[in-house]
Nucleic acid binder design. Sequence first.
DNA 1: TGACAAATGCAACTAAGTTGCGTTAAGATG
DNA 2: CATCTTAACGCAACTTAGTTGCATTTGTCA
Lengths: 140, 140
Amino acid sequence: MRTKEACLQELKTKGIRLTRSRKALISFLVAAHAPRAIPEIQTSFQKEGIVFHKTTLYRELEFLINEGIVKEVIVSGEKRYYELVGEHHHHTVCLSCGDIRDIVFRENLLPIEQALSQEDGFQVLEHSLEFFGLCRMCKI
Amino acid sequence: MRTKEACLQELKTKGIRLTRSRKALISFLVAAHAPRAIPEIQTSFQKEGIVFHKTTLYRELEFLINEGIVKEVIVSGEKRYYELVGEHHHHTVCLSCGDIRDIVFRENLLPIEQALSQEDGFQVLEHSLEFFGLCRMCKI
DNA sequence: TGACAAATGCAACTAAGTTGCGTTAAGATG
DNA sequence: CATCTTAACGCAACTTAGTTGCATTTGTCA
């Protein structure tokens, strides 16, 4: 599990400025432990009295993706979700409340990826696996 | 593989009207063999001289989803993709040209889904597995 | 062919995301 | 601590996906 301090130190070492929005975003994503979309991040900040222009958030996330700190997660069709880069994992998505959670397990998709390369000429760079259903709360 | 005629017959049997847009959409999706987004469908129709208002397309796809003919596919973060309901399968998504293709194989995610239910109380209703990378054309 | 509901088109809207540009501030240097 | 440079920021104005209410049209069946 990546800490906020480790992320900030990593950026500082690279000679990258530690700005208000940069620190706030990393802090937020470290605490989240799950993918978050920009509109969610914005309202969450507002509740704490922190205000950033949406342009800033979009640009900052793009920056952190290029630095390898954050990755875009492909989850649903309406918004883009972001999370800290870390151990390879997948997600559960509740179809009722929209809650997204990380799940970690060892899957073996290598044979499939090799078959795709040999049979279709498709070079796999990454994969995403999501489970859709009802979370503990919504199931009742 | 579902044919256009079979789909139309199925609807007719249910007493559903075979309208201009309904027939055009089914015909398009049968030919596509892969997920398509509404903006793509719209421009594709325009090239053939067929014009439908976007509202009609959104409503028609929603209708066909309720009838079990079409399903929404969760692929990328910007648009919603739709395809004909058929054999359970997954997708390859080219990160360069955006091309999406169906791939069919037998995976066994049941143990994972059972573990999710027992350990986290998450009831899986469906899953989605996508491979991102470079297609035969873009790889070069 | 006429009736009626289903389907359609339109206008007007919301919400996510993007771009150009002038201003601000992080942090390095003296 | 003051100054300088440039990365980062905020704003306005924009594009595009998707939605809603309502009046009009059209498929189908009697």
